[in-house]
Every structure is written in structure tokens, then in C-alpha cells.
Simulated assay, not measured.
Amino acid sequence: MSCSRRNFVSGAGALAIVAGTTGLAANSLSLAAENEKKAIRYAMVHNEQACIGCTACMEACRETNQVPEGVSRLEIIRSEPYGNFPNVKYEFFRQSCQHCTNAPCVSVCPTGASFIDKSTGIVDVNPDLCVGCQYCIAVCPYRVRFIHPEKKTADKCNFCRDTNLAKGKQPACVEICPTKALTFGDLNDPNSDVSRLIQEKPVYRTKVELGTQPNLYHIPFQQGEPRR
């Protein structure tokens, strides 16, 4: 079998093109993987052992995000008392948006108003697209959404995405907490405070069996049973 010089050069050129294309594809995949690693996934930890139920977080949230009276983006729920007087203790539980990685409120929204911010993982609502159908409120297993009484659109905690976070600050509830019971940060960064806390402390999340993959963690109160 003979191979002319022209065919050899042509074949070598084709191989070079394929190799170059493969190299470009590999570089593109590498760059995509690097960008994926840099993606932020915000999470929060509520330390029930440190929380004193002062509700300063609720008021700071209301003031910072201009939440009207009668509705709330977060609630601190107080348990029944543990122990006997004068050694009585309470468990305080934070109820707010879980910022689920697999958010059912996003899946059912007919207009795309409910969405997950790809750059931060924050679940949010675009009021310009919301028609107030309340599908997201009905499907949320955590019951943390409401219709804003003035805007008439769905609303909830968004980690102060368009207020404090937009200014490079921590969420209002985190900044105001007098006992540092709240920790906020990037869960994709293994060196962040929130990542280290989750690794070092026993934590739990609620309703994980539903597959929502919530990003709100709790350090359980010592005298109480972890909520499921």
C-alpha cells in the first residue's frame, strides 16, 4: 500500500486540526469546570443554642426590606418551656425561606417570577412577573411565602439580596443578632464560616425527605428534640 507525500501532508494536517479542536474543547471544559467551582451557594445556620428569642432579627428584616406590618419574612418561634421555675428554658426556632436547591416554588411558577439566582443560589421573586396566583405559596412545604399586602405579589426572605447584600453587607438579621446565633456565607467555599460550622457542629435541616435540598441549617437546642 503506497502513501503519497501529498496524502501524508493532508492527513497530518487533518490530525493537527483534530488535535487543536480537541485541545480547545478540553480548555473550554476546564474553564467551565473552573467557573462552576467558583459559583456561590449561599446558606445560613441558625444556632438554637445561642438564640435568646429577642426577635431583633425580625425587626431588622422588616426595617431593611420595608416589610409591612401583618406579614413577615422570618419568624422566631418559641417552644414550650423546658424545666421548672426558676430553671426554665425555651427553644427558639427560625422559620424562613430555606433557599432550596430544588425549589418547588420555582417549578410551579407559571410566569417565571419565582427563580433561583444562578450566581448565588438565592431563591427570589421578580415582582414584575408575579401575577399573584399563589401557586408558590400553596406548594411551599415550609409555609414561608406570603402575598405582599401593598405590591400584591409573592414575597419572602431573599437573604437581603437587593438591600444589604447589594451593598456588600451581611443580611440584616445576621448583622443585628446580639448573640451571633446566625452565620451566613458561601457553602461552596470550604473555608467560609458557614462551611466550617456545618462541618464542626451537629446540624439538621427540615423536611429533607422531600428532596428540596434546603440551605438553611440549624444547630439543635441541647434540651430539645431536633425538629424534622
Rank of each mutant, 00 (worst) to 15 (best):
C3P: 03
R5E: 10
S10L: 10
G11L: 03
A12V: 11
A12P: 05
A19T: 12
A19N: 04
T22W: 08
L24Y: 11
A26W: 03
A26P: 02
A26F: 07
S28T: 15
S28I: 15
L29C: 14
L29R: 10
S30V: 15
N35A: 14
R41D: 00
R41F: 03
Y42A: 04
A43H: 01
H46C: 07
A50L: 15
A50Q: 08
C51E: 08
I52F: 02
T55S: 11
T55W: 09
A56N: 11
E59L: 15
A60V: 00
C61N: 05
R62D: 01
E63G: 12
E63Y: 12
N65W: 03
N65K: 12
N65I: 11
Q66M: 12
V67A: 05
S72M: 07
R73N: 13
I76V: 12
S79Y: 01
E80D: 13
P81Y: 03
G83W: 02
V88K: 06
K89I: 14
E91Q: 12
E91H: 07
E91K: 06
F92I: 02
Q98P: 03
Q98I: 10
T101W: 14
A103K: 08
A103T: 08
A103N: 08
S107K: 06
S107Y: 07
V108C: 09
P110E: 08
T111Q: 10
G112L: 02
G112S: 04
S114F: 12
F115M: 04
D117C: 07
K118F: 06
S119K: 14
I122G: 00
I122P: 00
N126A: 05
N126F: 01
N126Y: 02
D128P: 10
D128I: 12
C130E: 03
G132Q: 00
G132I: 05
Q134Y: 05
Y135Q: 12
A138W: 15
P141N: 06
P141H: 07
F146Q: 12
P149L: 02
E150A: 09
K151S: 06
K151A: 11
K152N: 04
A154R: 06
D155W: 05
D155C: 06
K156T: 04
N158D: 15
C160E: 01
R161F: 15
R161K: 15
N164C: 08
L165E: 14
L165K: 10
A166M: 13
G168M: 06
Q170R: 13
Q170V: 15
Q170P: 14
P171S: 05
A172F: 00
C173A: 06
I176C: 08
T179A: 14
K180I: 02
T183L: 06
T183K: 02
F184Q: 01
G185T: 00
L187Q: 10
N188S: 08
N188A: 01
D189R: 01
P190V: 05
D193T: 13
D193F: 09
S195L: 02
I198L: 10
I198K: 04
I198V: 05
Q199T: 14
E200H: 00
P202T: 07
Y204F: 12
V208D: 12
G211H: 00
N215Q: 14
L216N: 02
Y217M: 05
Y217G: 03
Y217K: 05
H218G: 04
I219R: 06
P220G: 03
Q222W: 10
G224V: 13
G224D: 09
E225S: 09
E225Q: 07
R228P: 05
